[in-house]
Design a protein around this nucleic acid. Sequence first.
DNA 1: AACTACTCCTGGAGGC
DNA 2: TGCCTCCAGGAGTAGT
Length: 303
Amino acid sequence: MPELPEVEAARRGIAEQLAGRAVTGLELYRPRLIQAAPGLDLDLLPGHRLLEVGRWGKYLWLVFEPLAAVVHLKLTGQLVARGGSIPGFAAGHPVPPYDAPLPHKSTALRLDFAPGIQLYLTDVRHFARVWLLPVDEVDNYVESFALGPDLLSPDFSFETFCRRLERRQAGRLKPTLLDQSVVAGIGNIYADESLWQARLHPEQVVGALSEDDLARLYEGIQQTMRLAVPIGGARILHGKAVPPVGEFPFVHGREGQPCPRCGTTIVKLQVNGRGTYLCPHCQPAPVGSPLGAGATQRLAAGE
DNA sequence: AACTACTCCTGGAGGC
DNA sequence: TGCCTCCAGGAGTAGT
């Protein structure tokens, strides 16, 4: 599902291939996609250029001359551009396949750009949203989500990260990483990957982390982003990586497979209702945890 | 403050 | 083949 690396892939594709081009037409297949401020409408776009594209965490915004569109792909949103003389790009959820004929039955919006280019927003579960706003209200609108620092921003320093975690001493690690007001951009896949990199258990209590744990966690997040962003993110469908499968992701969606680091069988459990994958050897249950030693394995075995 | 449950949705998987 | 149920989850909200 689209998390920071997937949304960043979309931002780069739009910035490199669509910015500066004029909108020539559009088709809105699913009106509920759009939430417009009073007086604004998609039909204002044709004839105007895309001036700028921005991103903070999983939010993406496109600034046109008459208005701005803030996009959230949620679980299954996908952005694909093709046509004209551009190389094209595809980012987000891997269903329908990136090379499928478009529009797909779940395509919600098509924007046409000169010359002969189409940008499709497709979303099989209909959770994605596009907000239409006056251009000068975008900053305030994005700030209203109270997002933590973006993982790719210089603002995401080790010091800032520790300060953000200080407010969440009693929380468990994975729900804390998924909270976008702590840091912006981590979702279920990259939380699992970052914790595996850091060798930390997802149910570890934040306040119990040592300085060394915190340093490994920060580095684990950075390392996960360094791996995922250049390839446009992991393609996960129904908890399984969509081929072609490389090394990445290392644990998410790999229940029953050997840990790439130590060979121990990767297990799946539920943390705050989220499917969570980990290596029980690299990421032992926290000492003094009410779960106790071996609880992860017992849970995974359904005992 | 932290967690759970529910809502929004569809389609794939598995059971029978 | 064809029903049926379960499950996946980002984020907002309400309740505990």
